[in-house]
Amino acid sequence: MACISTALIVGGSIAGMNAAIALAQQGVTVDVVELSHEALGASLAFSGRAAMALVELGIYDEVYATGRPDLPGNTAVSIRSAATGEILNPGPARPTWPGAVPGVGVFRPTFLAVAQAHAERLGVRIRKGVTYETIEEDADGVTVTFTDGETGRYDLLVGAEGIRSKLREKVFPDAPAPKFAGQLSIRWMVPGEPVPDEGWYASPAGRLGFYYLPGAGTYVPSVINIPEPRWYSQDEVRAIFTGLLDTMQAPAIRELRARLTDSSELIGRQFEWILLEDRWYKGRILLIGDAAHATSAHMGMGGGMALEDAVVLGQEIGGAATLPEALAQFMERRYERVKLVVETSVRLGQLEQERAPHSENVALLTKAFSKLGTPY
């Protein structure tokens, strides 16, 4: 029997929506508030234990059916020649074990639609365009007023607002701000038929990879070193991305370059990271996902860590005698695992900026993936 009866989740993205599922599975009455009306983004990839988290949440089969079931794997991380497209390095192997399910890549809005529908089937109440206005905590619960005029009282409040979490600023005013990681990420969803020779390509200007997602198009992420953090206009993002494409002559990259138009939508974001030390909760308020441990995309594990947070939270709420015990055990299971992902991702970005041999990158990834293959 769960140690709480009610929970509010602020933020309805990967961590929040799946935490709602995990808590509802334990019999908890869950409300979710999310400011955004529409899910945005490009691709998500779940492999290893993160794919097993999808199984535990009860959504693996639907995600598998709507996504790309052979990702992520060596196809997604193969290093190819920027001049010819020839495979130079197949990339580090992902961990596996008896009973493991295949990894899967999926269009982010599709994934969130699947998760939301499943949460609603479990009785979760989801309100879009709404967030909290005031929060008052006492020994017995948390009273919340919302921007739509409603008031609610809960046993647990979960903050899953992402790296810019306002709840983190409120609950942990001394927490560090997100740190700049020295690189710019530019992502693009390319319409049309698949482009051959999927994988990663690199030149002195940066690196770029791509793979096809059914029903969504070809997902193209790229990473470029930049000297300092600043806002980039859409014109600047387009110029940087076009310049990167123009440094590569492989046939697949030339095909991508031909599909780039003035109306192509590019998402440019500088890489930042944050890791709250010690613990991510205070009283009856807990932070999960990017609100507590945002990272760069170098390992492709940010979404996976959010899923694991959700599953472990549900397990601990369902198995512990009291809320303090559940939150303490949650931290015991999550902190070192998440720290490994954050610190490894930051170091991988540093190796790229230092132009270290690719073998150092592969060795670091292989070591981290091996540890992440153990149960969460």
Rank of each mutant, 00 (worst) to 15 (best):
G85W: 04
W273H: 13
L364Q: 04
Y212W: 12
E133T: 13
Q270E: 10
G162M: 08
G27Q: 06
S264A: 13
T96W: 09
M248P: 05
I226H: 05
E86A: 15
R257G: 05
S264E: 10
T261C: 03
V158T: 08
I59C: 07
A320Q: 09
A93G: 13
S233E: 07
R333W: 02
S78V: 11
D262G: 13
G11P: 06
A177F: 05
N89H: 15
H293S: 08
L372T: 10
L57E: 00
I267E: 01
T151H: 13
L44S: 04
E120H: 07
G129V: 11
S233N: 04
Q116E: 14
V362I: 15
W231T: 15
R153D: 04
R279D: 05
V237Q: 01
T131N: 12
Q249R: 13
A82Y: 10
S263Q: 15
L54H: 03
Y232W: 12
D174Y: 00
G152K: 06
E86N: 11
G303L: 01
E332R: 09
T6V: 11
V55S: 07
D278I: 08
T366F: 10
D138S: 13
D138C: 11
A368P: 00
I253D: 00
P221H: 06
G85M: 04
Y64R: 14
Q329S: 14
S13C: 06
M331S: 08
A216W: 00
Q270N: 11
A297T: 14
I226D: 02
L266H: 06
R207L: 15
V223P: 00
G268L: 07
S233C: 03
C3Q: 02
A119G: 03
S47G: 15
L323I: 14
A258C: 12
I4Y: 07
L184H: 03
R259Q: 03
R334L: 06
G304K: 00
G103V: 04
T295D: 02
R153Y: 04
L348A: 07
T84C: 13
G300R: 01
V30L: 13
K371S: 15
A252H: 10
T247D: 05
S345F: 11
L364R: 10
M299Y: 07
I253P: 05
P109G: 03
A115G: 03
A50F: 02
I126G: 00
M52E: 14
T151G: 06
E169C: 10
L287P: 06
L323M: 09
G199I: 06
P102C: 13
A19E: 02
E34L: 12
Q270G: 09
